[in-house]
C-alpha cells in the first residue's frame, strides 16, 4: 500500500514539475516566468529528497531556487530601469533605434513565430526520445557506492558526499571553485558597480526583520558547514545561506551600500581557490599527490578548505548579485 502511495506521489510530483517547467517556458510575461522558475526549483528540491539526496535538496533550495531567483528578479528590475532610462534620456533626439515597443520587449517576449514550431518540436522529440530509450536500456550497475564505502576510513570525514567532494574527487571541487571565481571576474569585467534599481523599503519592517534574520542565518550557515563532516551539509550549502543573508543586507540599503575595502574583498573572494591549490601543491610535494592529503591530516585540512570555500562562495554570490566591480576601484 505504501509503495503504491509513493508511486502516486512520484507521478504527481513529476507531472507538476513538467507542468511548471512548461508554463515557465511558455509565458510571455517574464516576471511570471521567473516566479514559475523559482517554484520549479522548490519542487525540484522535493524530488531530490525523494531520490535520497538530502545534500542536493539543501543546495537546490538555497542555490537553485533562492539565489538564482534573486539574481533573476534583480536582472528584470535592471532591464526595466535601463529601458525606462533610455526612453526618458533624449526627448528631442530621434526615437531610439529599438523602437517604441522597447519597453515591451524588455520584460515581455511575444509568442514565438509559427515557422520555428515544427523544427523545434522535431529536434526536441528526437533528442528526448533517444535519451529515454538509452536510459531504459541501460543495465543496472552498482555504481561507485561500494568503492567509496570501502575507503571512508582514510577520507577523514564520516559523510560520503563530503568525502567525495573534498577528498576523492577534490579536483572537481577545486575546479568548481575556480569556475565560480571566473564567473565573478567575467561579471566584473563588464563594468563597474551600478546602483541597484531597488528603492529602499520604507518603514521599520525590513531592518527589524533583518536584525532578527541575519544572526539566525549566520548560525545556521556555520552549523551546516560544521555538520558537513558527518551529515548532509557542507561548504556549498553554508556558502549559499550566508550569501543569501548578504543579499538581504544589500537589499536593505540599496542606495548607500557600504563597499568593502578592495584588497580584503579580493582576498576573501580568492581564498577558497588559493587555499585549496596551496594545500594541493603541498600534498604533491610531501607525498600523497596533487590535491591529496595524508590520512592523519585529512580532517583538519578538509575543515580549513571548507571554511575558506564557504567564505569565498558567500562573498562571490553577493558580489554576483551586486554585479560590477566596486566603484572607484581602479584608481
Amino acid at each position: 500500500m505504501s509503495d503504491l502511495l509513493l508511486v502516486v506521489f512520484d507521478l504527481v510530483l513529476l507531472v507538476g514539475l513538467l507542468g511548471v517547467a512548461w508554463r515557465c517556458l511558455a509565458s510571455t510575461d517574464l516576471f511570471r516566468a521567473v516566479v514559475l522558475f523559482i517554484t520549479f526549483g522548490l519542487l525540484l528540491a522535493l524530488a531530490w529528497v525523494r531520490l535520497e539526496a538530502p545534500d542536493i535538496a539543501l543546495a537546490e533550495a538555497a542555490i537553485g531556487a533562492g539565489i538564482t531567483g534573486a539574481l533573476l528578479l534583480v536582472t528584470l528590475e535592471r532591464l526595466r530601469s535601463i529601458v525606462v532610462e533610455r526612453r526618458r534620456g533624449q526627448p528631442d533626439e530621434p526615437p531610439d533605434p529599438a523602437g517604441a515597443d522597447a519597453l515591451l520587449h524588455a520584460l515581455h517576449d511575444p509568442p514565438p513565430p509559427r515557422r520555428t514550431f515544427v523544427p523545434a518540436l522535431t529536434f526536441a522529440l528526437v533528442v528526448g526520445g533517444l535519451m529515454v530509450t538509452a536510459l531504459w536500456h541501460q543495465p543496472d550497475a552498482v555504481g561507485l557506492e561500494p568503492v567509496v564505502d570501502e575507503h571512508m576510513d582514510v577520507s577523514g570525514v564520516d559523510h560520503p558526499i563530503t568525502a567525495v567532494l573534498l577528498n576523492f574527487r577534490a579536483y572537481d571541487t577545486f575546479l568548481e571553485l575556480a569556475i565560480v571565481l571566473i564567473a565573478l571576474l567575467g561579471a566584473w569585467s563588464l563594468g563597474r558597480y551600478d546602483r541597484l534599481p531597488a528603492r529602499p523599503a520604507p518603514g521599520p519592517i525590513l531592518p527589524g526583520t533583518l536584525r532578527l534574520l541575519v544572526p539566525v542565518a549566520i548560525v545556521t550557515g556555520v552549523y551546516i558547514l560544521w555538520a558537513g563532516s558527518h551529515a548532509p551539509g557542507g561548504a556549498f550549502q553554508a556558502g549559499a545561506i550566508l550569501g543569501a543573508a548578504g543579499i538581504l543586507l544589500v537589499l536593505a540599503r540599496p542606495r548607500d551600500l557600504p563597499m568593502a575595502p578592495s584588497s580584503p574583498l579580493r582576498l576573501g573572494l580568492a581564498a577558497g581557490v588559493a587555499l585549496f591549490l596551496a594545500i594541493g601543491i603541498v600534498g604533491l610535494l610531501i607525498g600523497p599527490g596533487l590535491l591529496g592529503y595524508p590520512p592523519a591530516w585529512a580532517y583538519p585540512l578538509i575543515i580549513v578548505i571548507e571554511v575558506a570555500a564557504t567564505l569565498s562562495i558567500a562573498l562571490t554570490l553577493v558580489a554576483l548579485f551586486i554585479a560590477g566591480r566596486p566603484a572607484g576601484d581602479d584608481r
Partner: peptide, 10 residues
C-alpha cells in the same frame, strides 16, 4: 548546481 548558478549569474 553551483557551476550552474555561477554561469547563470554571468
Amino acid at each position: 548546481i553551483v557551476v550552474a548558478v555561477s554561469a547563470t549569474a554571468f
